[in-house]
């Protein structure tokens, strides 16, 4: 008896250990995969910027550049080095935690990116915080009225919102709520020096609303489908037969299960939101990494382009990883 118990516990311990090790290996593999992806992205960006016509020295010196001054500046900026050498210098810097200096302003890239990254994350974070409950509410409400007027209205409007680019949604909101029709919100997201966007919520209302409409419509449709699936599942039918109240069925049984399917999707929507932020920041002159990326591409400021693209790529990776992990967890539960 005693021996059997020990053996069982040993088996359990071994199983748990094996699972932990498998999970550890999985995480390590995904991490390696992530690092490799970022490395490939950085090489691609480097090659792409080399292929773009025009270099940063030309942009810095403008139309009054002379060949001598261009040559001198290229030497100063290290643009005269072989391309692979430039890349390795940059990579070496990144590995030491120093992504270099802006070629245009000479300021450390970390300084230029730091505050803007916080601003962008804040904008995306606030948008997600608003979007998730709204999408849930809209999706569940539509699902519960499946086929009725409200549901059809929801399907129609969410389809339009889905199909409309963020740039158009934002521009329409500016006209509607910022400048012309009913001007109640600031049309441009200006932030006082050194202050968090959270202290100026009206200033970021329109960019948040744009992201919420763009991402929320998609997410709410997923919630609706997922909720309809769950509501037609056998165990919900069983619960109904048992005579449980509808409220109890919806909130205790259906919703948690529907959420399981939606949460990974929400992570993907968050990833899409980070991408969409480039457009929204530009439209509302919001000082985030998206507008910085556009400016640095315009001026061919490679270290800044690299830093911002890697941040966006890393965010994608992390959020996708999160989505995969959450989806994996749900599968195991099932």
């Amino acid at each position: 008896m005693m021996r059997t118990a020990t053996r069982t516990s040993e088996v359990a311990t071994t199983d748990a250990g094996r699972r932990r090790r498998r999970r550890g290996r999985f995480l390590l593999l995904r991490l390696l995969q992530g690092v490799l992806t970022l490395l490939v992205v950085s090489i691609l960006i480097f090659v792409a910027t080399q292929l773009l016509p025009g270099d940063v020295a030309r942009v810095i010196l403008g139309d009054a550049a002379t060949p001598e001054r261009l040559a001198a500046l290229r030497v100063q900026l290290g643009l005269d080095l072989p391309v692979h050498q430039q890349y390795l210098n940059w990579l070496g810097g990144v590995l030491r935690g120093d992504p270099g200096q802006s070629l245009v302003t000479g300021r450390p890239v970390l300084d230029m990116v730091g505050v803007r990254l916080v601003n962008s994350l804040t904008l995306a974070g606030v948008a997600m915080l608003v979007m998730l409950p709204l999408a849930l509410l809209a999706g569940v409400s539509a699902a519960r009225r499946r086929g009725k007027l409200l549901d059809r209205l929801f399907l129609g409007t969410s389809m339009i919102a889905n199909a409309t680019p963020e740039f158009v949604i934002g521009s329409v909101l500016v006209v509607l709520l910022g400048t012309t029709v009913w001007p109640i919100l600031p049309p441009v997201a200006l932030l006082p020096t050194g202050q968090s966007p959270l202290m100026h919520l009206p200033s970021i209302a329109l960019p948040v609303l744009t992201l919420v409409i763009a991402g929320g419509a998609y997410l709410a449709r997923l919630v609706r489908v997922s909720f309809i699936d769950v509501m037609s599942s056998e165990y919900i039918q069983m619960a109904k037969l048992k005579g449980l109240s509808e409220r109890r069925i919806v909130y205790r049984h259906a919703l948690p299960n529907a959420l399981g399917a939606v949460i990974p999707a929400a992570s993907l929507v968050a990833a899409i939101t980070i991408g969409g932020i480039v457009v929204v920041e530009y439209l509302f002159a919001y000082p985030g990494i998206g507008s910085l990326l556009l400016e640095s591409i315009r001026s061919r400021d490679l270290p800044v382009i690299q830093a911002v693209v890697l941040i966006i790529a890393a965010s994608y990776f992390i959020l996708n990883f999160l989505a995969d992990t959450l989806a994996g967890g749900r599968d195991r539960r099932a």
Binding site: G178, P187, V188, Y282, A285
Partner: peptide
């Protein structure tokens, strides 16, 4: 500073 002319004009209209 604005990186886009449209945002600049919007800010003017909005009194910013």
């Amino acid at each position: 500073a604005f990186n886009d002319q449209a945002a600049l004009v919007n800010a003017l209209r909005g009194g910013q």
